[in-house]
Design a protein around this nucleic acid. Structure first.
Lengths: 125, 125
DNA sequence: TTGCATATGCAAATGCTTTTGCAATAAGAA
DNA sequence: TTCTTATTGCAAAAGCATTTGCATATGCAA
C-alpha cells in the first residue's frame, strides 16, 4: 500500500499552496521548505504517482517542459497565463467563443488550448 | 558569402510546397525527394541559417519540439490546428475576440497562442 | 517493538532533440 | 579551368528533462 511520507505530504502541500501550475523544480524548491533533503528524483516519482492517482494533471505550454496542477483545478475548463517577466504560469477562468469558426471546411474540433502572454500583477507594479 | 546549394534549394522548396509548419525530420524527408543524401545535421544547420535570414520562423506547440514555417506565413497573425490522427499541423486564418476579458485585474496581455486539436479533412474522410 | 515492504537519496543512465569536429565536396569568383 | 572557402555527411558529443539501480532509511501492520 501507499505510504504517507513527509516528502509526499510536502509535495501535496506545495500544490495546494501554489494554486497554479508548477514545474518539477518549482515543486522541489517549494517542498524543500518542509523537507530540506527532498530530492528531484523523488519529486518525479511522486509526480508520476500523483498523476496515476488523479491528484494532479500535466499542463503543457508551447516550447516548455511540463508543469503540473491539481486535478481539481483541471476539472473546470480553463486556460493559462504566462508572465514574460517572472516566468510564472497562472490559471485563467473562462473561455472564448468563435473558435469553431476558425476551422477550414472538413476539419473537426475536439479540443483547444489558449495561452496568454504578458506581465502579471506582481511584475506590473 | 552564402552559397546556393542543392540541399538549401531543396529545403526551401519543402517549405514552399508544404504550406504548413514542418518539423526538422519532416523537412528532411520532404527534401530528400530532391537530394537523397541530405543529412539531418545539414537540415538543422540550414534551419538555423534560414531563421537568421528571416526566411522561416519557429512554431511551438504544447509538449512538442519546434516546427518551422515560412516567415511570410508568420507575418500575418494566425494560429494552428493539430490533427490528433495524423499529427500534422495546419495554419488557421483569423483570430477570436474576448481574450482580454480572461485576464484578472492587473494583468497585461502582450501576446497569445491558440491551438485547436481535432481531425483534419484528410483523416475525417 | 519488531519485521518488512515501500519510499528515499544519490549517482549513473536514458531518451530525445540539437550541435559540433573534421575530412571530403562542391559553389562560384577569377 | 583553377582555386578558395563555404557547405556537406558522418559520427560523436552536448544539453535537456526524466528515469532507474541500489543500498539505506522509514512508514506502519502485527
Amino acid at each position: 500500500m501507499q505510504r504517507q511520507t513527509l516528502q509526499r505530504v510536502a509535495i501535496e502541500a506545495a500544490f495546494k499552496d501554489a494554486k497554479r501550475p508548477l514545474a518539477p523544480v518549482e515543486v522541489l524548491e517549494a517542498a524543500r521548505a518542509d523537507v530540506p533533503t527532498l530530492n528531484l528524483a523523488t519529486v518525479y516519482r511522486t509526480l508520476k504517482r500523483m498523476i496515476q492517482d488523479h491528484f494532479i494533471h500535466p499542463v503543457e505550454l508551447p516550447g516548455e517542459s511540463a508543469r503540473y496542477e491539481l486535478q481539481a483545478a483541471a476539472n473546470q475548463h480553463h486556460h493559462h497565463f504566462r508572465c514574460r517577466k517572472c516566468d510564472l504560469v497562472y490559471d485563467l477562468e473562462g473561455c472564448v467563443d468563435g473558435l469553431q469558426s476558425l476551422l477550414p471546411e472538413g476539419f473537426r474540433m475536439t479540443g483547444h488550448d489558449i495561452v496568454i502572454y504578458g506581465d502579471c500583477t506582481a511584475c506590473n507594479t
